[in-house]
Structures are given as structure tokens and as C-alpha cells.
Design a protein around this nucleic acid. Structure first.
Length: 590
RNA sequence: CGGGGCGUGGCGCAGUCCGGCUAGCGCGCUUGCAUGGGGUGCAAGAGGUCGAAGGUUCAAAUCCUUUCGCCCCGACCA
């Protein structure tokens, strides 16, 4: 590609809207341009890089038996209504009506389409297992896109779907993906950690997320310092304290004026936070219910509430899945007879209030709790004797330093960006859309499904985030838009330009694609642009280099320069490329 | 959705508080000359409904109202 013809230019200054490094560099180097919030154009350089990433994805998917197809971006709402997600997913799903007034959906994922397809195509156990995938556009109307390509609304995703006879088959498909996804990330030069995750709107039994660890990440992950336990904080378990058994003391009301926080309470009464109970109030919207449900969450004063766990705990009640959870307003709290700052489940006039207690509460005797009266708390409240809950479940959040649920050693917290995920869905979607197959005994069985995805643009951004220096990007050889950046410097004689032109053609002839900076720019401009764009190998044709007997070769990732005779340049570059690939492989083989 | 910030040539900004000639500056872009290994110099140019609508005023980038968009924090999120 001649740079004089390349669509898209580099920017000297950082556009004001970019704060995150990958966003700044991708804008400055002429890879992306923004059209709207979370909506981007991928210029030729980014397009080529993404195409290369997708090629790696296709190779790895094909290697585990995947078959590529393409599914639509616009779906009739019908199938989403059948699985319930038309109702369960909120404004994140973009909807519209077509000219015939039919409800339509922009694809945010493709389980429904897959299930509909399976219903038509799969009838017999002989057709299973099957694995299909595509690389397709998704639209999720995220309330807050941010950080350039890290969190966008429209994006390209590799998503694959495994279809199996049974759960054992799904386990195998899941394992195959688990490994294939690591290979994809590693071949792209990105180091990731797989952590256990919540299944969220996807549903299903088990899920992992692939996390690129970085301080700009939006997710908080917990890693055990000793064993290999790791999880997203949304679903991370931890070893809770084991309180000693005590004689249940008599409940006692004490005045505690102006003591509405656990800190103040703990100080005033000289009791550790672990011997208090705190109440947190929510309004939960449940699928299929008109009125939001008041949720009274109770946990020990030394614990932090985990909203994801709370949502899941409410979901186990069978009253419907939570579609929205928000903090209750003071009026709403007072309306159920509780007093903000002094609330407890004891003697609560029970309207339609759902009490969810953390599982540490029943094991913790003689806790200080609110008296449902401003200015008073109760000493020695005990679960079972004084009150009960509708659900007892783990609703506490694992924080930095919390003991590992497996080995009790402390866990540490890190931030990360989710670049991929894998879900064991089971028959949630296949049953909803009625896809079954006949087994060898002629019995009808549910197709068991898994779904797996990687965001291509987000992956590109993470690679940029990981591979750069103060001058610009440093693309891994596997995803670089071109392996070679060929620079010709202005010169008096025509020989320099002719040598460069010939070299450019020779490289093309050898299949070594290059970005050829043939512009009438000065050396500094060209070198700076080359550093900014970050292609792996830089070749410089100049009078000075020719006088030294050849062309200057420099790797973007190293400082050394060397002169290589023109006749040997093709071989030399091929060697460099091979070494770069070898180094990349080396990095992840341990 | 709550809080904060910002919309002025392609990019970065000044001017807005306190209304007043033809709206500036740097970069980039065009042309010419010089220069020629790390964003070169000189000269001459092109390019702007000051986000939009309405209002106040003799006069609005500037004041008022409404609205749209973008960014950041939070809520949210596969």
C-alpha cells in the first residue's frame, strides 16, 4: 500500500474526546474514526488488522470442528418473545417496527437465531454434535459507551454455538472452546486470564470470561494468591468467617440517637461491625410483574452487598427473573414500615416485602440491628428466634483480601477488560424454541447448547493497550496490518526513489505486503508516522543507507538498526518475520 | 437515568464572565522557493451557518429559554 494513497491520515494532536491510550493511539495513527457514541468507522489500517484477527479466529474455530455461516443482524421479535428475552432484556436491545408494523430487533447476540435454525435443521442424534460460528455485527444500546473501542454499541463479534446430545457433549465442546480461545488470544499477542463469571442475561449453568488485566478495565476480578481460583467479583465466592456458637441473649432495645450508619453504630456501642446487621433496600422489577417488589437485603455489618448475587437469589424464588434492580427511595422504605438507618426485619409489618438474608446471618448470634424506630437499635437479635427471611443466600461481595473459597488464602483484586466469554447454556433456548432430536431409542430429547464469543474490536483495542510505547503502537506480527513499513527518504539522485520503488515491487512479489511511505515528506515526519502506526519491521531507503551498502532495517520493538544489501533484503525480512512469530509463540508456551 | 464538563474551519485551542468593526491563533491542507536522517524554514492562499431552534437587543460566538450531540464519574453491561 502506498502511503500517498492510503485513506486516512495520522494526527499530530490527540483528539479531545480520547482519554484511554488505545483510543488515542488508534485515532492518531489513523485506524479508527468516531461517528457517534460507541459507533466507529474502521479505516483501512484497522480493517486489515481486524481481518487478520478474524483469520486467526477462523483457523482456530475450524480446528475444533466449527463451520462458518452468517446469520442476520435484523431479527423478527417473535423468536425473542419465545425465549422471553424480548421482555427480560431492557433498553439495551434496539427495537423497531418494520413497514408492516412487525416488531423487529437488532441482533445483540444470536442464540435465538441459532435455536430457530436448529429447530429446522436438526432432527436426529446422527446430526449431533455440531458446531457453528460466524463473525457478525452486534448492536447493544449500551447506556454508557466509553474508552474508544473498549466499550462500544456496534461491534463485530466472533460467536460460536455448540449443539450437543447431552451435557457430557457440552462439557467437551466447552473445553474445546476454552482452549481454542486461549490460542486465539495468545496468537494475537494478548495475555488473558479466564475467570468464572456470572451468567447474566445469557442464563445457563457455567460461564467463564477471558480477561485482559489492565487498570483501565471495568470489571473487578479476584485471584487467589495460592491456588488457581479466580472469578469476576460479580460471582466470586469467598470463605466467610465461622462465628463461634453463643448462648442467645435476650433482645434489648437501646437508644442510639443520630446513629444511622454502621460505622457510627459500631463506635457508639463499642461493638465490632461483625456483630451488627445492616439492611439495604432495593426495588426489584420482575419479569411479568406490574409493580416493583420491595427487597429487604440483610447482611452482617462487616460485609458488602453484591447486587449480582442478590438478583440471582431473588431469581431462585420462582416469582420471576429480575429485570431491573435499583435502590429504594426513602418514601418506599417508610411505606413498608421500615425506618432508614434504623431498619431491621424484626416486627416489620409484612406487606409485599421480600427479605433476603446473607447466609452468614443465621450463623452469627446476638447481632445489633435496627429497631424500626428512629434513634433506637436492638441488641442480641437472632435469626430464627426473632425473625426469618424469604431467602437465605450468599449475597456478600468478595473484596480485595477476602479468603479464597477453596484454600482460604487471601485473594487479591485486579481490574480487567472482558475480551471473550463462554457459556454452558443447556436447553434454555432450544426448549423455548422447540428444538429437539430423536435419540437412538426414538425418544425426543433437548438439544444442549453452548455459546461462546469474542469481540473483535475490543480485542484490537486491548492489543493496542498492551503493545505500545511513548511513540506509538507496536503491533504483534500476527495482527499488524502489514509486516513491513518501507520508507524512502528524499534525495538528490533518482536512484534512491528507484531503489525504493523496485524494493516495494519485489516485496509485493514475494507476498511481503508493505506500507510504502512514498510521500514527499521529510525524514522526521516519516519516522514519526512509522513509529505511531507501529508496523513490525521498518525499512529505510536513503542516500546514506545506500552509501553504506544497502537498506536500513529496524524492528519497531527494538532500537538496533542494521544495513542489509538490497539483494538480501527479502530473505532477511522473512527471517525477521519468522523470528517475530517464534518469539510470540515462545511467550505463551510455558 | 443521576452528577460534572465540553460543543468556535480537518485536529488542538483563545474569545463567552462584562454583548460592539470584516471571528482569531497553532497544527494540518494548497501553491512557490529553499532545505533534505527524527514532526524544517520563508512567502502567498483556501477553508468557519461559532451544534441547532426560538427569544432579548440598534447590535449576539457572547445574555435568556428550549433542544441536540460528545466526553468523564456513577447507575448499567455479554
Amino acid at each position: 500500500m502506498r502511503m500517498s494513497k492510503l485513506f486516512g491520515q495520522t494526527l499530530r494532536e490527540i483528539p479531545a474526546e480520547a482519554e484511554v491510550t488505545s483510543h488515542q493511539l488508534l485515532l492518531r495513527a489513523g485506524f479508527i474514526r468516531q461517528l457517534g457514541a460507541g459507533i466507529f468507522t474502521y479505516l483501512p489500517l484497522a480493517h486489515i488488522a481486524m481481518t487478520r484477527i478474524e483469520k486467526i479466529m477462523r483457523e482456530e474455530m475450524d480446528a475444533i470442528g466449527g463451520q462458518e455461516l452468517t446469520m442476520p443482524v435484523v431479527h423478527p421479535a417473535d423468536i425473542w418473545k419465545k425465549t422471553g428475552r424480548w421482555y427480560a432484556v431492557g433498553a439495551e436491545m434496539a427495537r423497531f417496527v418494520d413497514r408492516a408494523d412487525r416488531d423487529m430487533v437488532l441482533a445483540m447476540t444470536h442464540e435465538e437465531v441459532v435455536a430457530d435454525l436448529v429447530r429446522r435443521e436438526i432432527q436426529s442424534y446422527r446430526q449431533l454434535p455440531a458446531l457453528i460460528y460466524h463473525v457478525q455485527t452486534k448492536f447493544r444500546d449500551d447506556p454508557r459507551p466509553r474508552a474508544g473501542l473498549i466499550r462500544v454499541r456496534e461491534f463485530t463479534m466472533l460467536d460460536s454455538y455448540s449443539l450437543d446430545l447431552d451435557w457430557e457433549g457440552l462439557d467437551m465442546a466447552y473445553q474445546a472452546h476454552y482452549a481454542a480461545y486461549f490460542r486465539i488470544f495468545n496468537r494475537c499477542g494478548l495475555s488473558v486470564r479466564a475467570v468464572r463469571s456470572d451468567t447474566g442475561m445469557m442464563g445457563g449453568k457455567e460461564a467463564h470470561e477471558y480477561m485482559y488485566l489492565t487498570s483501565i478495565g471495568e470489571d473487578t476480578l479476584l485471584f487467589c494468591s495460592h491456588c488457581d481460583y479466580s472469578a469476576n467479583r460479580q460471582s466470586a465466592l469467598f470463605a466467610k468467617p465461622n462465628p463461634e456458637v453463643e448462648v442467645l441473649k435476650k433482645i434489648e432495645k437501646v437508644p442510639t440517637p443520630n446513629t444511622s450508619s454502621i460505622e457510627d453504630l459500631s463506635e457508639l456501642l463499642h461493638v465490632p461491625k461483625a456483630r451488627t446487621a445492616k439492611a439495604i433496600f432495593y426495588m426489584a422489577e420482575l419479569a411479568g410483574m406490574d409493580q416493583p417488589l420491595f427487597v429487604f437485603a440483610l447482611l452482617r455489618g462487616d460485609m458488602t452487598l453484591n447486587e449480582t448475587k442478590l438478583v440471582n437469589a431473588i431469581g431462585t424464588l420462582g416469582r420471576g427473573q429480575v429485570t431491573d434492580l435499583r435502590s429504594a427511595l426513602d418514601e418506599e422504605i417508610l411505606a413498608v414500615g421500615a425506618v432508614p438507618g434504623y431498619a431491621s426485619p424484626i416486627d416489620l409489618p409484612k406487606g409485599d416485602v421480600l427479605i433476603v438474608a446473607d447466609d452468614l446471618i443465621p450463623r452469627s448470634p446476638n447481632l445489633v440491628a435496627g429497631a424500626n424506630q428512629a434513634g433506637f437499635h436492638l441488641l442480641n437479635t437472632n435469626y430464627g428466634r426473632d425473625y426469618t427471611a424469604d431467602v437465605v443466600a450468599d449475597i456478600s461481595s468478595a473484596e480485595d483480601g477476602a479468603p479464597c473459597p477453596l484454600c482460604r488464602n487471601p485473594m487479591y483484586a485486579r481490574r480487567g477488560v472482558e475480551v471473550g466469554n463462554i457459556f454452558k447454556l443447556g436447553s434454555k433456548y432450544t426448549d423455548a424454541l422447540g428444538c429437539s432430536y430423536l435419540d437412538e431409542n426414538g425418544q425426543s430429547q433437548s438439544v444442549i447448547m453452548g455459546s461462546y464469543g469474542i469481540g473483535v474490536g475490543r480485542l484490537l483495542a486491548c492489543i493496542a493497550e498492551e503493545h505500545h510505547d511513548e511513540k506509538g503502537l507496536i503491533w504483534p506480527v500476527s495482527v499488524a496490518p502489514f509486516p513491513v513499513h518501507l520508507i524512502v527518504l528524499p534525495a538528490k539522485s533518482d536512484e534512491v526513489m528507484k531503489t525504493a520503488d523496485d524494493l516495494y515491487k519485489a516485496l509485493c512479489g514475494e507476498g511481503l505486503l508493505s506500507l510504502y511511505d512514498d510521500r514527499a515528506e521529510r525524514a522526521g515526519v516519516k519516522f514519526n508516522d512509522a513509529d505511531l502506526i507501529g508496523l513490525p519491521i521498518r525499512l529505510t531507503v536513503s542516500e546514506r543507507a545506500l552509501a553504506k551498502g544497502g537498506v536500513e532495517v529496524k524492528l519497531r520493538s527494538q532500537d538496533e538498526k542494521r544495513i542489509v544489501p538490497v539483494s538480501e533484503i527479502v530473505g532477511s525480512i522473512k527471517t525477521d518475520i519468522n523470528q517475530l512469530y517464534a518469539a510470540l509463540e515462545q511467550k505463551f508456551n510455558h
